[in-house]
Design a binder for these strands. Structure first.
Lengths: 229, 229
DNA sequence: CCAAAAGTGTTATTGATACACCCATGG
DNA sequence: CCATGGGTGTATCAATAACACTTTTGG
């Protein structure tokens, strides 16, 4: 049972910025609100926290309802608690972000939203509530994280080219990177395994395919690195 | 009015890890609990969030009650929300940490605690609830922050020596640092102003005194730096 | 004159940056 | 044979790391 749902004076919620990478762009999953306030406006997916549910399970539940996915990268970012952030009462919300591979699932019909869509983050300029601010705070956190820990690979398919990785980093950091230096650096981390296969049917020299090395990831998770790019 | 105080089933709180630097050690302010649960055990200062109070104001209120201080460095760290983290009901808590100069005030009597004390963080090995974990998460965040932004000077008196700064960094990072390299690096940031004064009445060569340059701080606050030490 | 902490420079190594051409494939 | 993106190396510069002795004061 969510906090104080019936006599709504105060509530406790989570919002989840779900990132994916598609068509060279960083995309965010949005829902169109079916109810007031902000009816018919785009918003971040979220949920009230059930009283018998661990906090982290709330955004996981949202994610599962929307995408069917479990075991997804999920990181808590910040808790937003201004008194007036929700027009109908006091709602404190914990923001999370997730990284998913868009191709691994299809969007599911969901009860709480009329409509669901992906939108490139650079094409979003307003959202319901303070969700735009929440999204941008999550983006900044993703940008910091991607420079310090080997995350981001959750956004790619199982095998990918070095150019895919570079395109992803450029999309996240919103910045062009030098090809040779990028390759040197990412390979020096030894988190990518060359699988000795190549792209097929491309109208140019086929690129080598790589796989993400999960063991090295585990080593770096705590230790971190400094991807100065 | 705090969330659901009377019929306590769920509540929303903040806990504040208040750091100070004294006798070469990083200290944390603790309160002895006057009530069950965990009666007579040491805990982090905290408060329930009032329904008409911005989230960030709650730890500031705690701080003011305990120390009389306002305008203190305060950073949100993480929100802890396991179902069973509080034995008496569902309490989600937002952890903050503060940095204060221990000499600038005296501890005040407080209603919610029998007793208040400073304890060196290395001498703390358990606390009420999950407060030990909360404290350690805040410490890690402080350690990260101090390497990337010019924070920490809130812990020092208005004038200080370079050795004071080094001792502080060593206490925070729990690691010995090379004197010459440390000085080179910290001076290269230009956030310290040499005030052309010296220590008095010390039984050794007196050290130069420095002041923290708040303008340079503002520049670095967003830009950050990389204090690889 | 002793004890204590302050203060100071150089070298070696590592990492970051800037930069341009040839290669393999499909059409 | 053209267009497309894949792939590669070097030189310069900046930052980091390791390291030991002299100076100034009070007692």
């Amino acid at each position: 049972m969510p906090f104080s749902k019936d006599s709504f004076k105060s509530a406790f919620s989570v919002d989840n910025v779900i990132f994916a990478f598609d068509q060279g762009k960083l995309q965010v999953l949005l829902i169109k609100r079916a109810e007031e306030p902000f009816k018919n406006q785009w918003a971040l997916p979220g949920a009230l926290v059930n009283i018998d549910e661990n906090l982290r399970d709330a955004p996981m539940r949202t994610l599962k309802e929307l995408t069917g996915l479990e075991d997804v990268f999920l990181e808590q970012v910040f808790t937003f608690g201004k008194v007036d952030r929700h027009p109908k009462g006091r709602v404190i919300t914990v923001a999370y972000y997730s990284l998913i591979n868009k191709n691994a699932f299809s969007l599911q019909a969901s009860s709480f939203a009329q409509e669901v869509k992906w939108l490139a983050i650079n094409d979003i300029d307003s959202l319901a509530f303070d969700h735009y601010e929440i999204m941008m705070v999550c983006l900044r956190r993703l940008q910091e994280s991607v420079r310090r820990r080997p995350i981001g690979f959750e956004l790619l398919p199982e095998t990918f080219t070095l150019s895919d990785v570079q395109d992803l980093y450029e999309a996240i950091l919103h910045k062009e990177l030098d090809k040779r230096n990028f390759r040197k650096k990412i390979l020096s981390l030894k988190i990518l395994d060359d699988i000795n296969e190549y792209q097929q049917n491309v109208a140019h020299r086929p690129a080598k395919l790589y796989k993400f090395n999960i063991d090295k990831y585990e080593q770096f998770k705590d230790r971190g690195f400094n991807f100065e790019i």
